[in-house]
Amino acid sequence: MSKQGVTEQIIELIKQKISSSPGTSSEDASITADTLLRDVWLRLESIQVVELVVELETEYETELPDELLGQIDRSPLMVSDLAAMVKGDAV
Rank of each mutant, 00 (worst) to 15 (best):
G23N: 15
T58Y: 06
S46R: 12
L68Q: 07
D73H: 06
Q9A: 15
V40P: 05
A84K: 04
R43W: 00
L52Y: 05
T62G: 06
A83Q: 04
S21V: 06
E27S: 11
V40A: 10
E51N: 09
K15R: 14
A84S: 15
L82I: 11
T24P: 00
S2T: 15
I31C: 10
I18G: 12
S19Y: 02
V86F: 01
E27G: 09
G88A: 15
A90K: 12
L52V: 09
M1H: 12
V6G: 06
L64Q: 02
V49A: 15
T35Y: 03
T62K: 07
S19C: 11
V40L: 14
Q71H: 08
A83E: 04
V53W: 01
V86P: 01
S21H: 07
E27W: 00
T32N: 03
M85H: 01
L64R: 08
D89S: 09
L52M: 13
L13M: 09
T32K: 06
E55R: 11
T7P: 02
L37K: 03
R74S: 09
S26L: 11
K3W: 10
A83D: 02
A33N: 04
Q4G: 07
E61A: 14
M85L: 13
L69A: 09
L44S: 11
L36Q: 12
D81Q: 11
A29M: 05
V6C: 15
L77Q: 06
M85T: 01
I11M: 02
E67G: 02
A84T: 12
I31R: 07
D73S: 14
S21P: 00
D28Y: 00
L77Y: 05
A29E: 07
D89H: 04
I72G: 05
